[in-house]
Design a protein around this nucleic acid. Sequence first.
DNA 1: TCCTTATATAATTATTTACTTATATATGAT
DNA 2: ATCATATATAAGTAAATAATTATATAAGGA
Lengths: 106, 106
Amino acid sequence: MENTLIEKQLKAAADLNRIKLLACMKNGEVCVCDFVDVLGISQPAVSQHLRKLKEAGIITERKVGTWKHYRLVEEQTPLMKGILEQIEPVKGCTCGSDCTPIREEN
Amino acid sequence: MENTLIEKQLKAAADLNRIKLLACMKNGEVCVCDFVDVLGISQPAVSQHLRKLKEAGIITERKVGTWKHYRLVEEQTPLMKGILEQIEPVKGCTCGSDCTPIREEN
DNA sequence: TCCTTATATAATTATTTACTTATATATGAT
DNA sequence: ATCATATATAAGTAAATAATTATATAAGGA
């Protein structure tokens, strides 16, 4: 892997809030409103974190009506595969509202 | 692994100059004066990068006379093992002075 | 159409990070 | 002891990052 891509993905992952976002998405799609509750920061702050992860090619999104569901991309780089393996998944990243996305039950 | 340790190690690795330091050390010990040439930044800047890597438990050092030789620690966390695998080793990180450390020839 | 809700973007500010130069420490040589 | 060299630490500054508040966009419902 190219050093500059390694740097970009490491920088995107090297933040406690973004690690938590990734931890939530390990269980499947999560919508933005859920992340706000989980992290306890403002909605724009969450949006900006998600954008950084997206620009690094780590996550992607899907629009569902008013909501937006974010998930890990299928094809991760070997670097990100290794990193994601070390992040403990977090269940129950849903605020309980009706934005609850389609996800595998677990 | 603990999220805060993951964050600490990712932050330590998430910098192009520090990635280059790690790339040099994949071939064995390197002394500080060599790094200065390789990175093209000031000696104190190199020292500070090395300290950050050391504080994250990624590298260690050995004093040899006036010089200090840095190397990757043997026991890397699973996270760092994965990251280090993706960094291409860089040979010839020696400025050619007599600080040249003991290292495996390759 | 107008209002509400969900998310994104813009502008601003606070904090962190990565340099620089200057100085301190430690070792070895004369 | 003094000097030269290698490295570390301190202090200051510039640049990057992460938050905030305010505003824009876009969809759905009354």
